[in-house]
């Protein structure tokens, strides 16, 4: 019997997205849908096309061909309107290190037009357990503190779409665990659609509802983390990741004793 049509609201959709750099395809007919309230993990080895995909989705890089829509609107033509409802955090960007934490957050609260910004910033800082950092110089924060400040910035405008690029990179297991829990809590409370990249498979298993494995710009696996493991001969997601990274389009047969 065919499965019933998916009626969930599509927040972000890519259709046949292709991006070439000097004749090499970093993304090759990449298509996916991200629904409201869903966390989609984008996985792949270095150079698989995750960053290119993220950059295209943020409008930082234009695709060579294909379509990109967010909230039902073409991304390029409605970039500002879409960015007002979205946010982004990456381990590889920083808020200006020479300003105090509250100053940086106040600037972004004003950019996003956050009503009652002081209260909002205080609430989010409390949620991420960093209220004590408010008057610290941003550039003097530890990696864990800096990541959590970036997350406060990312949650400031109550985004409906959030893109998180390796949010737990360089964090110790304790802080990484806290970050994952907060992301999941806020995401569930506010039904945020999140696109999540990480090399940490624990992150993916804990946070993501569904994952896409990319290899040389193409989707080679898609499904829930549990389904992907079950459909492979591997015991866990990390092994699947390693096999895809080394062999590309894996030809494993599903495990015969799969529980799923």
């Amino acid at each position: 019997m065919p499965s019933p049509p998916d009626t969930r609201e599509v927040i972000l959709e890519a259709r046949d997205l292709t991006r070439e750099f000097d004749g090499v395809k970093a993304l090759d007919k990449f298509s996916f849908k991200l629904h409201r309230g869903e966390v989609l993990g984008l996985l792949g080895a270095n150079g698989a096309g995750k960053t290119t995909a993220m950059n295209c989705l943020l409008g930082l890089t234009l695709p060579t061909s294909g379509e990109l829509n967010a909230f039902g609107l073409p991304l390029q033509a409605n970039r500002i309107q879409i960015l007002q409802r979205s946010n982004f955090s990456s381990a590889y960007t920083a808020l200006p290190g020479n300003l105090l934490v509250w100053q940086n957050l106040s600037v972004f609260a004003r950019i996003y037009g956050v009503p009652n910004p002081k209260k909002k910033i205080a609430e989010l800082m409390e949620l991420l357990e960093i209220s004590h950092l408010s008057k610290r110089v941003t550039g003097q924060l530890s990696a864990g503190e800096s990541t959590r400040v970036n997350l406060v910035k990312a949650f400031l405008n109550d985004p409906e779409l959030l893109m998180l690029d390796e949010p737990t990179a360089s964090l110790d297991p304790d802080i990484a665990d806290k970050v994952r829990k907060v992301v999941r809590k806020v995401q569930r409370e506010r039904s945020i659609a999140i696109l999540y990249t990480s090399h940490n498979m624990r992150d993916i298993e804990e946070v993501c509802d569904r994952v896409i494995f990319l290899h040389k710009g193409k989707i080679v696996r898609e499904g829930t983390p549990a389904d992907i493991v079950a459909q492979s001969s591997s015991d866990n997601l990390e092994d699947v990741f390693i096999k895809i990274a080394r062999d590309g389009e894996i030809l494993d047969e599903p495990k015969k004793d799969s529980a799923v």
Binding site: G59, L60, L83, Q84, F88, T93, L95, F108, Y112
Partner: peptide, 9 residues
């Protein structure tokens, strides 16, 4: 900070 600005509205 440039990326933060370019991905903001």
């Amino acid at each position: 900070n440039l990326l933060n600005i370019f991905v903001a509205p």
